[in-house]
Amino acid sequence: MTNRFVLSGGPGGGKSALLAALAERGYPVVPESARAIIRSRLQSGLAPRPEPAAFAQAIFEQDTQHYQQLQTVDTPCFFDRSVVDALYMLHAAGAMDEAAVAQQSSAYPYNRTVFFLPPWQAIYQTDGERDQTFSEAQRVYANLKRWYLRWGYDVVDVPCCSVPERVAFVLHAIAQAAEQSGAD
Rank of each mutant, 00 (worst) to 15 (best):
R146G: 13
M96D: 01
V156K: 06
F79E: 00
A53P: 01
R146N: 14
T113E: 08
A53Q: 04
A107C: 13
Q138F: 01
R81A: 07
S82C: 03
V163N: 00
Q103Y: 13
C161K: 04
K145F: 05
E51V: 09
R166P: 00
L144V: 08
P76F: 03
Y148Q: 05
L117A: 06
Q125Y: 05
A53C: 12
F60V: 03
E165N: 11
S106Y: 11
Y148E: 01
N143R: 15
P118K: 14
A92R: 13
E61C: 07
Q104E: 13
V84H: 09
S82N: 04
P118M: 09
V114D: 00
R166N: 04
Q103N: 12
M89F: 15
Y108A: 05
N143V: 12
Q125M: 06
Q71C: 12
T75P: 10
Q69S: 15
L117C: 08
A58I: 01
S105H: 15
R81N: 07
Y153T: 00
Y110E: 02
G128H: 10
E165W: 02
R81L: 10
V83W: 02
H91W: 07
A122G: 02
W151I: 05
R81V: 07
F116Y: 04
Y108E: 08
N111A: 12
Q125E: 15
F79R: 02
P118H: 14
Q65N: 12
Y108W: 08
A95D: 05
R130K: 08
P164F: 00
G152D: 01
T72K: 13
Q68N: 15
S162C: 06
Q62G: 10
M89H: 13
T126H: 02
Q121W: 11
A92F: 01
S82W: 05
A93L: 04
R81E: 04
Q69M: 13
Y67G: 02
A56I: 05
Y141I: 04
P52W: 02
V114L: 03
C77G: 07
Y110D: 05
Y148N: 03
Q132A: 15
Q62W: 09
V140C: 01
Y124T: 02
R81D: 00
L149M: 13
A92E: 09
Y108M: 01
G94D: 09
Y124A: 03
Q132N: 13
H66W: 09
Q57Y: 14
V163R: 05
Y148K: 09
P109H: 11
A107Q: 14
R81S: 00
Y141Q: 04
C161T: 15
E136G: 08
H66C: 11
P119R: 03
